[in-house]
């Protein structure tokens, strides 16, 4: 995967977040403060602007710029958390001009580690970690088993979606939903839902034939 691939991934995320904005905000209204969709929409719109204004020349550069922009523009918990995830992924990729699925899988692990370090959440706390951790595991497993990138991203996306749905019965232990105690059960966590969109966008990039894409991933 080259730099272009990662730019398209960001574009896919921007479009997916825009399309899912109201849904994410509704999920957040149920157990939070009704702003997750609008915040991420604002953040990824800013990412698109930043990438257009200062196009990075490595995959890692794309992710670091995306992460820094989210930290600068989003606010709330999701800005620093997603920002750190992308920055740590980008730093894990270093200066490589081309990235293998195995390298991306370990970068995703690095992003997950960053989120855990900053937010202190573990799996089962009803947060984005509940989608991101299974996604990282699924991607690594598929790559280890000799799967191609497309299969690895599809497995990661499916695991993230499953992880997000599995947050429904959980009682939140981190973030604003935790204030609700037992009443947070019965609702999907908005952060896990947006993580599923972001990983799902990776699958969409790998499977789509973009006329703007110079090289197939």
């Amino acid at each position: 995967m080259d730099t272009r691939f990662f730019v398209i991934w960001m574009e896919e995320i921007t479009a997916a977040v825009r399309a899912g904005r109201d849904h994410l905000t509704r999920l957040d209204a149920a157990i939070g403060d009704a702003d997750h969709g609008t915040n991420l929409d604002r953040g990824f719109a800013a990412v698109a602007e930043a990438l257009a204004a200062r196009p990075p020349d490595t995959p890692g550069g794309v992710l670091v710029l995306a992460g820094s922009t989210l930290i600068r523009k989003v606010g709330g918990a999701s800005g620093p958390l997603y920002g750190t995830a992308f920055r740590d992924m980008g730093k894990a990729l270093g200066d490589a001009a081309d990235v293998s699925a195995a390298e991306l899988a370990s970068a995703l692990e690095a992003g997950l580690a960053g989120v855990r370090r900053l937010g202190g959440a573990e799996e089962g706390d009803k947060t984005m970690v509940d989608a991101l951790a299974p996604a990282a595991r699924a991607m690594a497993r598929t790559v280890d088993a000799g799967g191609d990138p497309e299969e690895a991203f599809a497995a990661a996306a499916a695991a993230a979606e499953e992880g997000a749905k599995a947050t429904v019965p959980l009682v939140a232990r981190k973030g604003r939903a935790s204030y609700l105690g037992a009443r947070s059960a019965g609702h999907e966590d908005p952060g896990a839902a947006s993580t599923a969109l972001i990983v799902g966008a990776l699958r969409a990039v790998a499977t789509r034939r973009s006329p703007r894409s110079e090289s197939r991933p």
Partner: peptide, 11 residues
């Protein structure tokens, strides 16, 4: 002041 019900950003 951040956005409505959203913390300010580090910058």
């Amino acid at each position: 002041p951040g956005e409505i019900f959203t913390s300010p950003v580090p910058d």
